[in-house]
Write a protein that binds this DNA or RNA. Structure first.
Lengths: 251, 251
DNA sequence: CCAAAAGTGTTGAAGTTACACCCATGC
DNA sequence: GCATGGGTGTAACTTCAACACTTTTGG
């Protein structure tokens, strides 16, 4: 494992980084965890960026992504998937980005290619906070973002595209919800990932037919309308299904 | 553009490479273009590898993949798609691979992460030949491959997986066929990519309904059975379709 | 009693699967 | 004339999209 107490620039690879697109869901819309780079970039462009960092020479890419996620949120064994590699030679040439790199990197001018990952995190399990990475960190609704540092906006869009594809094929959405949730919440989650309305009755029928939800005997409390049944994701049934072969959720 | 007549090690990035999975189709099965590393590795493991090389600091990843493909096959503007980034720290630790790297790289011990691309090439337009990369190059049926240099076997499988996914969604298979082809050839192509038999009648109905094929007035000649009509891919109709929104071939 | 979201079935259209025989050619 | 792959239609079934009203709760 990398050891941050040493002079880590001996181990950091100057040319390869990972960036993490950490998705959350606030029960209304899809959000992403961004870090605030603080004043150093003020006046020169976007302060917000995806969390990411150079990799260590002795860790593989997946480990690096997990490490960055862990260092930022303290979360381990979270759903993580590679988006791909990015890195035009000019990705670091915005003024604000250069200034920032000079403040944090040993070789701020180096050509960097970055490997992007996305991960799905239950927002309820992580409250953003300042960290080694960030003066501050926020959950920001994806729909409200229109610029980010470096090529991070492009990466975010690519990650969302992958998520969109993936959720049509595998029930990964559950990673974004608390352990107990209602079908309406799941419904809104799918709509906000796919960016289109889904018929309520058809959605429910389809998701229930898949047979990976267990309804609890419990209802919502304190809501000013008919309370919803709570469900939980049933990992056992899911394992069964994946073994009998199964890859189509077809939304 | 990189200039190979200079001392290119000034420009080559020691830590990032691209590898190309170049698929072909011999009208029977899916094949892939491999290079033979020659005797240097004999006795130590697989001689065959994917074509690939370090990137230049002033080219982006897509350019690098196109360059490698061009240098190897002379083919330009070929369908190319990123598979993802690979590169465990131990990927270069097979003995045979180390020996080879020492013979071709300035920094054979450097940590390298590689970005893999796959491309679809009409075999009829390229006859493998020795090149800067390779003592020799061959089209090898994918189903016959069970080991390759470095982590190239893993990369090949990942590329095939992406291709499998993609062909269900977009009609990219045409890139593997000569300009005139029969429906049976297309049928075999889909079967060999998807690794499963497809019903002949259903396949034809489905592919014709999509409406991106034009049948020519021409027939096969010299075959010892009823000659097949020849078709060609109709790019115009395809463009129409992609605009009206369209992403499901559903095989 | 009002507002708000939960929950529930049916119908028509489209798509999917499975399946068997005749045809045109080269040898 | 025989071997080979080309080419064709239908019926049963499943899936999909569209659509409106009643229920339960809090305030």
């Amino acid at each position: 494992m990398p050891n941050n107490t040493n002079n880590f620039s001996l181990e950091l690879n100057p040319n390869v980084s990972v960036d993490c697109v950490i998705f959350g869901f606030d029960l209304e819309q899809l959000t992403v965890l961004l870090i605030d780079r603080g004043e150093i970039s003020s006046g020169f462009g976007p302060r917000l960026a995806l969390p990411g960092n150079l990799i260590y020479d002795n860790e593989n890419l997946d480990m690096a992504a997990n490490r960055v996620l862990d260092e930022l949120t303290g979360l381990k064994s979270i759903y993580l998937e590679q988006v791909g590699a990015f890195g035009d030679p000019d990705r670091i040439h915005k003024q604000s980005d250069q200034a920032w790199l000079k403040s944090i990197r040993a070789e701020p001018e180096a050509r960097v290619i970055t490997v992007a990952y996305y991960s799905l995190v239950p927002m309820s399990k992580y409250k953003p906070q300042a960290s080694s990475f960030a003066k501050n960190a926020y959950w920001v609704p994806v729909s409200q973002i229109n610029e980010l540092a470096f090529d991070h906006y492009e990466i975010l869009q690519a990650a969302k595209g992958k998520l969109k594809q993936k959720i049509k094929i595998q029930p990964i959405g559950f990673n974004l919800l608390p352990t107990k949730f209602t079908l309406s919440q799941l419904h809104r989650l799918y709509e906000s990932i796919l960016d289109k309305p889904l018929d309520k009755r058809n959605f429910r029928r389809k998701i229930l037919k898949i047979n990976i939800l267990s309804s609890l005997r419990e209802k919502q409390r304190g809501v000013p309308h008919k309370p919803s049944l709570l469900y939980e994701f049933n990992e056992e049934k899911y394992q069964e299904l994946t073994q009998t072969g199964f890859d189509n959720f077809g939304f």
